[in-house]
Nucleic acid binder design. Structure first.
Lengths: 249, 249
DNA sequence: CGCCCATTTGACAGCTTTCAAATCGCGTGG
DNA sequence: CCACGCGATTTGAAAGCTGTCAAATGGGCG
């Protein structure tokens, strides 16, 4: 899927370009960003609560996620990030990271020093705008997740999450037709939805029975896009992506 | 409580000064910010999903809250804001507001044009930093809410919310001792915690029985601060306020 | 072939919701 | 000063969604 001789930050550039249309100057500035590439194994901690990493990560390939743990050991997944996402802990301004960031799948990350990013923002206000807009959209997604976990039932929560991942995967150019990589185990779907893995399993079976979606072996296949959206009370506008048009087909 | 001849934006200035230490120059720039004052009644919509208001609100007095509605009519409260908070819908960058903002109590708001804010940020990078840091802390609070609703039981959720409001009220200089204004009805506490008002009521009664907190008639009285924190699995660090020390006494 | 992790299944408990209806508190008007 | 009325709080009973606890099954990898 990844072009062979492509710049490591190309996925990030494409994503930011979707956020705010970039010019040649900004793209060049992004390509010149200092960074080093690292592979992380599935499950590996990338940032731990309390860390002060001092850099952001651009996802070159794979999936990572943010999570937070209660005093009782309950785990809540806060967000899932994919190909092209810029993931920061913002420890520079906050003192230290207030949550964990872990690899959902084996992933390749480009570590970019926060100072270099800030310098690029100063030199290129359009870049600052693009990243700012991207952060605001992440906030919008977080609000939708809170609504999802707080006010929807188990079936809606799971269906909603599948819809969101489909639209975002489509926008990122991952997968094709109505088939996408699915990086989460059922236990992780539960951790993101505020459910147990057992109940998550039963919901997924019911979605399968109703011929809305096929989910397993690391991939999703959307069988009935309209039906799935209805089942999940899903309206894509909060994602601020235009590309879900293709999914409708 | 409000000094009589105080500048309308003084609460905002005090809050931002807590976020990033401001100099005389920045304070003056804030005081010069164009704005107009408006009173809003309890329950009144300040921003509706889909609006493009083009201005931010600084709370001069009272409480407001953000909320979002499911297709089934379920209401989730996303955040509560008090005295001194700067509340934006960020419609300039996002196109339109993706949630509602409503008055929780009768409130006095200072409307500030987003363009004027941006200009002030450009002229005073320290201000930009302060507001940016404030936004990041709002994000941290949102993550904690997601953890709260997704992974804690009803008793913990309600206790946690009371703890948070106490620390934030204390930091904002509202209330005194362990007594604070409490702006939410039990139904609204439920809407913020992902619970029904009936169950919220039962939880509050149990917290009262256990002599942790007294809650009613528009005010909270923390009876057992340590016990309440334990009941709510509450650790204040995610709020990035220092002033909870006073509560411990 | 064997191991490990993820998925699946069953039975049961229990937390939370639902649906009414009663009570309380407080501002308003007589 | 008291009665009224409305919203908020409280209460009860019963249903049901989701969690808990084990244990079995399945699939992929070395």
């Amino acid at each position: 899927m990844t072009r062979s001789a492509e710049h490591a930050l190309a996925p990030l550039i494409r994503k930011l370009d979707r956020r705010v249309k970039l010019g040649a100057v900004e793209i060049e500035a992004l390509e010149r960003l200092p960074h080093y590439i690292a592979e992380v194994d599935r499950g590996r901690f990338i940032v731990r609560e309390g860390d002060k990493p001092g850099h952001c990560m651009a996802i070159v390939e794979g999936f990572i996620y943010r999570n937070k743990i209660t005093g009782d050991g309950g785990r809540q997944i806060l967000s899932v990030h994919l190909h092209g996402d810029l993931v920061c802990a913002h420890d520079q301004l906050l003192g230290e990271a207030d949550h964990n960031i872990q690899a959902l799948t084996r992933a390749r990350l480009a570590y970019i020093p926060q100072a270099a990013l800030l310098a690029a923002f100063e030199a290129h206000p359009v870049l600052a705008r693009a990243v700012w807009r991207d952060n605001l959209i992440d906030g919008s997604v977080a609000r939708e997740w809170l609504l999802n976990v707080g006010r929807r039932n188990a079936r809606q929560r799971v269906a909603h999450m599948i819809c969101e991942m489909a639209v975002r995967s489509e926008a990122a150019g991952l997968g094709s037709g109505s088939k996408y990589v699915w990086p989460l185990t059922q236990e992780q779907i539960g951790d993101a939805s505020g459910l147990t893995s057992v109940h998550t399993n039963r919901i997924i079976q019911s979605l399968r029975r109703d011929e809305l979606v096929k989910l397993g072996r690391g991939e999703v296949r959307i069988v009935d896009w309209l039906g799935l959206q209805l089942a999940g009370d899903f309206r894509s506008s909060y994602l601020h992506e235009q590309d879900q048009a293709r999914l409708a087909a």
